[in-house]
Computed example of a mutant assay.
Amino acid sequence: MSHEISRILAATLNDLGLEHARAPSGNRDKSFMGGYGTKGVDVYLSDERHGLLLTSGVKGLVFDPRKNLKNRYRDMVMEALELHRRFPYAICGHLFFLGKAESALSSKKFGTVLGEAAVLMSGIAQRRLPTDAPELYEEIGILLFDPGDPDSLDLAPAGIPESLQAATYPHRLVDAFNRRNPFY
């Protein structure tokens, strides 16, 4: 599922002007040497001269997010850290999806799982300068859907700030890339 979303995201980035953005072919991630070892990415833009210029992870939790949300959050932090340690000027984003039905489950501190995800994701988003903390992402987008129900797709979940909505994520990612690489 995330490989199909990766292909759609890469095509959208191409349409928005990043014509060299790619999703790996087949069902394997593209690997780059990170700060501490190799790291697989879902969508990327790179060249021989500069290395990795842009990447987007495409992962989430469809089932049992209450149990695994904090683990996914920690994985995301380490992914950004790995990539920014080796490529401090790279634009790193993440498209994070949750099961729509599961996102409405209760969370002790945040009301719902979606509320908890929004708080966690906002804490690691909005890296503006290459000198900012390497464990942060330049952009994050949250979307909801229920597997097997294409009509359930929600790119702008209620209660999620626009700065975290999947509906604006590709545009924000391209804008961040263009600000950081005005001559590319």
Rank of each mutant, 00 (worst) to 15 (best):
L18C: 03
Y44S: 00
P157H: 09
E139D: 08
T38P: 03
K109V: 15
F97I: 12
F32L: 09
G51N: 05
R22S: 14
L13I: 07
S106Q: 13
L120T: 06
I91N: 06
I140D: 04
N71M: 06
D132L: 11
R22F: 14
D151R: 07
A117H: 05
S2W: 06
V77E: 14
K59F: 09
Y36T: 09
H94N: 15
E116V: 01
N27G: 05
P161W: 12
D15V: 08
D151W: 07
M1I: 09
H3L: 01
S103T: 09
N68T: 13
R127F: 03
P182H: 02
R28D: 09
D42V: 00
H84I: 05
E19L: 03
K30N: 02
G148S: 12
M121W: 13
G34P: 06
D64Q: 15
S106N: 15
R7Y: 13
N71S: 15
R128V: 12
I160D: 02
G99T: 01
G26S: 05
N181Q: 08
V62I: 15
M78L: 15
E162G: 06
H84Q: 14
S122V: 09
E116Q: 09
F87Q: 00
T12E: 13
S25M: 11
E4R: 08
D149M: 09
M33Y: 12
D75S: 14
A80C: 13
A176Q: 07
S152W: 07
G115P: 01
A23H: 04
L143A: 04
E79D: 12
D42S: 10
R180G: 01
G159A: 14
H3M: 04
L45R: 02
D154S: 00
R86I: 07
S107Q: 15
L69A: 11
T12K: 03
P130L: 03
V174I: 05
H50I: 04
Y89R: 08
R66F: 10
A80Q: 04
K67Y: 11
I124Y: 10
D15K: 10
E102D: 15
G148A: 03
Y184S: 08
H171K: 00
R74D: 15
Y137I: 02
F32G: 06
G111M: 14
P88K: 02
H94M: 11
Y137M: 07
T55F: 08
S107E: 14
H94L: 11
D132E: 10
F183S: 01
